[in-house]
Every structure is written in structure tokens, then in C-alpha cells.
Design a protein around this nucleic acid. Structure first.
Length: 337
DNA sequence: TGTCCACTGGAAATCCCGGGAT
DNA sequence: ATCCCGGGATTTCCAGTGGACA
């Protein structure tokens, strides 16, 4: 059934992309100066999750590499590397300069010094989920580095700019923007078709079943591919050669639950307790939530810390915060699209 | 309309931990 | 073994805000 599991993985970057020619062209043009040894333009990729932003950033960078003899590139997900230190570290890692870095011997400004003195081949970095950075000052650092072009990815422009100071905001105002929309149903179907062709045995799944997956994914390619992956896995386990409608229907909730489970796995004990309370109780006011939290753990954190946790969980799309100030309530997220 | 105050979120202080230095 | 340092996590402090209610 599954002939090549890689193409069903979320991080797989295909050789050809579909339905995103316009976006690829804009990004390619922004990077074009690199072909003449000049810095490319800073680019912002905006749009909902699963719209192909990460994929197109990687694809275009890869294509640039094929056209330019010598270029370095690095992909950094700010969800995982959310501090200034870690981002700088990753950037150095991309040019193999981290061997002798230790906290004691190399204060973080030395990381920056080293990057500023970098004079190797042109360097393209992709900062994914850049709104998740806790210390946005690293973006300012990027501007001080020569021979470096940044591609920034975020869901909504406001998420990024609301926490930037004026100095940074004005720098970004001139950057190139590329807006991504959700995929249409037929676009998703053809994306799935391609993945099925590359990764599954022939006639493993019919067009009708692919359409069913595309419909359930509601424009999100990541979810669509996740459902396909789950369906193929289940068919494998059952020993059948065809992914039937029944199997797809069984795989839909799993495909969605997987996204949620992955996020929930990242939660630590106290955050998990908060999440469980909201799952048990439904919508709650902040005060009630905190009281219940104190009852369930023996070493409660302060209210302020709990607010930070809740904020983070909202970013993870695990919970929803409604209302402002006094009228705020928290509830678990159930739709997950 | 005005006052009250539960709540938010920024900033700064402080705690805590790991790892090099002595 | 102990000290010291930097960085992340947490706490402390507090100004600001907008519903609730008279």
C-alpha cells in the first residue's frame, strides 16, 4: 500500500508545486538579486495554516540553490526555537560555526559578532511561525548581518507587528508580502492525487475518496495529507489494497486529533492540568479556572504565570479566549481547523 | 455617568539550574 | 568541591482597561 512514506510526511517538500505559481514567482523575484551576489529582499509570507507557506519557502529556496552555485540556507521554526539565543544559534548552525560555542566562553553577543563577520556564500534563512518569537529583537539583529536574506512566515500580519517596536515595524513596512489563501477543494484534490501517485501503490485510492478527504480538510493541505496518511496506515493494518470510503471516514477524526495531540504533547504538567480543567468544565471565567487549578495541583504557580500558560496555549490553538479584560472566558478548542 | 474592581499584560526583579573556572 | 555566570522560568509589581452596577 505505502510505497514511499516520506511523501506523506508533513515536512516533505515536493519537486513540483501546484496552484502556487503566482506566489512562487513573487518570492523568486524577491530572492533574485542573490544570483548577482546581492542581498535579496526581506519577504513576509502570510496566510492560514496549511496554505503552503512553508512548502513554497522551502521549494523556492531549493530552486535558487540549483541556480546559484553557492548558497547556504537554514529553516528555523520559531515555535521550537523561540528565544534570541536559540535562533542565533540555529543561524550559526546553518553555516557550521557552532562547534566551540558554550555559554560561558561565548556570550550571546559573540554569536552576533560572528554572524556579522560572516563573509561566506549568501545565506537564506526561513523563519517559520515568526510571531511565536518571545524576544523579537533577534529580527533587528538580522538586519545587521550582511549577505543574509530572511523569509518570514506567519499566519496574520497583526500577530507579528503587535509586539514589534516602531524601529522594527518601519523596517518591515517595506518588505515584500505574499498572501496565501486556503486551497480550493479541487486544488486540494490534485495535491492529494500527486501524493497518492508518489507514495501509494497504484489504484490504492479513488478520486471520490480523495474528494472526501479534501472536503474534511477545509482548505488545509496539512490536515488533508495527515488524513491521507492515516487512511493509508489503517488500510495497511487491515491488509486491504484499497482505501475505501469507510476507511477515510474513520481516518478523518484521527487526522484532526493528531494535530491537537501533537500540540498537547508539548504541554508541561501545569499547562496540561489547565487544559484538562477546561476540557472537563467547558467555558470558565479566569477566577474560577485559577481556583480549580489550585485545587488540583499541590504546588500552584502564580496567577501571572498561569496567564502566560493560557496565552501560550491559545497560540498553540488548544484553547480559545473570548472577551476582554473583566469579561474574559476561556474554553477548549473543539473545531480545530 | 461615575465608581468599582477583576482581569490583562508589560517590565523588572528574582529564582533556579547547568556547566566552565578555580 | 565550590564558585560564578548566563539564560530561561517564574514571580513581583503595577498601570491600564472595560464590564457591572448604582
Amino acid at each position: 500500500m505505502i510505497t514511499d512514506a516520506r511523501v506523506l510526511q508533513p515536512e516533505f517538500t515536493p519537486q513540483e508545486v501546484e496552484h502556487r505559481n503566482q506566489e512562487v514567482n513573487v518570492l523568486s523575484n524577491a530572492l533574485k538579486p542573490i544570483m548577482n551576489q546581492e542581498p535579496g529582499e526581506t519577504t513576509l509570507l502570510l496566510g492560514p495554516s496549511g496554505a503552503g507557506k512553508t512548502c513554497i519557502a522551502r521549494f523556492t529556496t531549493e530552486r535558487l540553490r540549483e541556480n546559484v552555485l553557492d548558497i547556504n540556507s537554514q529553516y528555523i521554526n520559531c515555535w521550537q526555537d523561540y528565544t534570541r539565543f536559540r535562533v542565533l544559534y540555529r543561524i550559526l548552525e546553518g553555516i557550521g560555526q557552532t562547534v566551540d560555542i558554550h555559554r560561558r566562553s561565548t556570550p550571546k553577543d559573540e554569536l552576533l559578532d560572528r554572524l556579522c563577520n560572516y563573509d561566506g556564500p549568501h545565506y537564506v534563512i526561513i523563519l517559520d511561525e515568526v510571531d511565536q518569537l518571545e524576544d523579537k529583537s533577534v529580527l533587528y539583529d538580522l538586519y545587521q548581518m550582511r549577505g543574509l536574506t530572511a523569509i518570514l512566515i506567519t499566519n496574520r500580519e497583526e500577530d507579528l507587528f503587535s509586539h514589534l517596536d516602531d524601529r522594527l515595524t518601519s523596517r518591515f513596512e517595506s518588505s515584500v508580502r505574499v498572501n496565501f489563501d486556503k486551497y480550493h477543494l479541487d486544488e486540494l484534490v490534485s495535491i492529494l492525487e500527486a501524493r497518492a501517485r508518489w507514495g501509494l501503490s497504484e489504484r490504492a485510492i479513488g478520486r471520490q475518496q480523495l474528494a472526501l478527504i479534501a472536503d474534511a480538510a477545509a482548505g488545509d493541505a496539512r490536515i488533508a495529507i495527515g488524513i491521507l496518511r492515516n487512511a493509508a496506515r489503517q488500510a495497511d493494518q487491515q491488509g486491504t489494497e484499497m482505501i475505501t470510503t469507510d476507511i477515510v471516514e474513520g481516518a478523518v477524526p484521527d487526522g484532526r486529533a493528531e494535530v491537537r495531540r501533537k500540540a498537547a504533547e508539548k504541554l508541561r504538567k501545569h499547562q496540561r492540568v489547565l487544559f484538562e480543567i477546561l476540557t472537563d468544565e467547558g467555558e470558565m471565567k479566569p477566577g474560577e479556572l485559577y481556583d480549580e487549578y489550585c485545587r488540583r495541583v499541590d504546588d500552584p504557580k502564580t496567577k501571572r504565570t498561569v496567564r502566560n500558560y493560557l496565552q501560550k496555549m491559545e497560540h498553540y490553538r488548544l484553547i480559545i479566549a473570548d472577551g476582554k479584560k473583566r469579561a474574559r472566558t476561556y474554553r477548549p478548542r473543539t473545531d480545530l481547523s
